[in-house]
Amino acid sequence: MQKQPDGRTPELKKCRVLGPMASIFTSANTGSFRIERPVVDYDKCIKCGICARNCPGNIIEIKKEQKECVEIDYYYCKGCGICANECPQKAIAMVRERGEH
């Protein structure tokens, strides 16, 4: 009989587990299926935050004290392009992933 894991694994130290479980707030890398990523041109950006307010994934954070103030969490960004469409300055470009253009 092939034994199932019955010890604590280093990554999941909480308990012996079989089956899907997480002990910290985390999620699968849903950014992995993105085809295009939003890239901000900070020479045009006016720090209005409209991109963040319209992001359906709620994964854009505006840090006004920084010059590069738009922080996009690419782990979750699906590349939908809504931020680029909503930007009043047309400061966000959608750039192909994997370098192809």
Binding site: P20, M21, A22, S23
Partner: peptide, 11 residues
């Protein structure tokens, strides 16, 4: 007292 997420999204 010892919370966990069960059946979370699995990549």
């Amino acid at each position: 007292s010892d919370p966990m997420f069960v059946n979370d999204l699995t990549p």
